[in-house]
Structures are given as C-alpha cells and as structure tokens.
Amino acid sequence: MKPAHDEPLNPSGASSIGHVVTEAVDTSHGPILYLDDITVSFDGFKALNKLTLTVDEGELRCIIGPNGAGKTTMMDVITGKTRPDAGSAFFGQSIDLTRLTEAEIAHAGIGRKFQKPTVFENHTVFENLELAIKTDKRVWASLRARLGDEQLDRISETLRTIDLLEQADRAAGLLSHGQKQWLEIGMLLMQEPQLLLLDEPVAGMTDEETAKTAQLLKTLEGSCSIVVVEHDMEFIDEIASTVTVLHEGSVLAEGGMNEIKSDERVIEVYLGR
C-alpha cells in the first residue's frame, strides 16, 4: 500500500486531468534514451548502482545479465514505475522520465512489454489493440470515442503484422502463449512508440515462435528504437547489433555479440555458468 506519488507530477503545468505530453521527443543529438548514474536501492540492496547507459535513435539494443543484475529495475525506472534514488533519466534531450507518471511516459512514446505476457484477457484481440491506439485517453474523450476508418485500417495493419487477423474477434485469454506475446507487442505498436522496451519477449516460446518474433523485431528495426532484455542467446545472436551486459546493477561490458562472447569478465559472471 505504498503511495507511489506523493505530489502530483506535472511539470508542464497543464490540467492534471489531461496527462497528455504534447512535447515531441527531441533526438537532435542522437541518443533517444539517456540513463546517467542511476541508483536504486531496496532496503539497502542496490538493485541499480550508478548505471549509465545510452540508446541511440533507431537502435536495437539487447541487455543481458544474470538474475538480479537489475534488468527489470532498469525498465521500471524508464517507465516511471520506480523512482531512482539518484541519477537522471532522459527521453530524448528534454523529457525527464523521473518526473512523469507511467501514463505520461507511455504518452511521450515509450512502450513496455512485461516479462509475463500482459494483455486484457477478457477483451477481444481487436479491443486490446483499440485500447492501446494512440489517441486522447481521457475519460470524456473515451465516453464518446468512435474509431474512424483510418484508425480501423491501422488496427487491421497491426493485426496483419502480428499475424492475428483471424483471431481478431476472440478473447485474448484464449490465445496461445506466443500469440499473447505478439498481441502485447502489437499493442505497443498501436501506441506509435519511439522506444520499445521488451522484457523477455521469447520466454516460453517454441523455436518456431522465437524465429517468428525475431523476424517481427527485425521488421520494426529502424522505425523505432528497441531495447530487449533476454536470456536466450541464440535469439540475441539473431537480432542484436549491440549488446549490453549488466552485472550487480551496473554495466559490465558493451559491444558487438562476438566481442561480448569473448569477454573474460562476461564469461565469468554470466556465459560461463
């Protein structure tokens, strides 16, 4: 029952009912995500310890590391779920992530996929995408909201991308594990994000589904920046250009896949085991 926000977080000063960040993401200096010296501790345990990381626009970045290295905590900080004790987190040049709520960050253009597939199980596949679509998400707008042809076409397009067109009318809870993962990715795409955070997108997938997911991510590469946390080395091998290894809350190594694979320290803490 910990209150997550004691003061209303609203740097823009606009009506707090709004929570619509209209500011565009400024990536004029290259990176879309800056994490600088981030520290998060839980009861003395440092989940993140002076973590510094930047992700460039359009980049596909993989993050690996042993359990407890701080991968999920890092995602929590970026999406506003956890506030860092120290350090700064910026989206583009000007959006301070440590001052926005989860909803505002989602509006600003960061989409997050959870470790466990999280979709609205009692809603149809179509309704899941409809809820995610980028639009005015305030109460009054939702009371009168009707989908225009253009939006319907966008949903259809996403349904095709994630290969769920045939299942559009089914309840999302009836989908297979892999299909749920894709639906969740589809929901993120509907938000038109500039940065996608994917927490173990192929966990529990069959080899065939994993390959299909890798293909899906490759088609997205370039249209937005993607950060993937994964354990599946084969999958990472297939998609990644740059790999960052986290260990005990900070960056242990960073570089191309081959570089990482031959790094002594990485082998010791992670790959070797």
Partner: peptide, 13 residues
Amino acid sequence: RDSESRLMFSGYN
C-alpha cells in the same frame, strides 16, 4: 479490473 498496470503503460491514468 483485469490488468491495471497494462492499462497505465498503455497511456491511461
């Protein structure tokens, strides 16, 4: 009712 955190990360308050 079904998944409040998913909803928040979809941009709803």
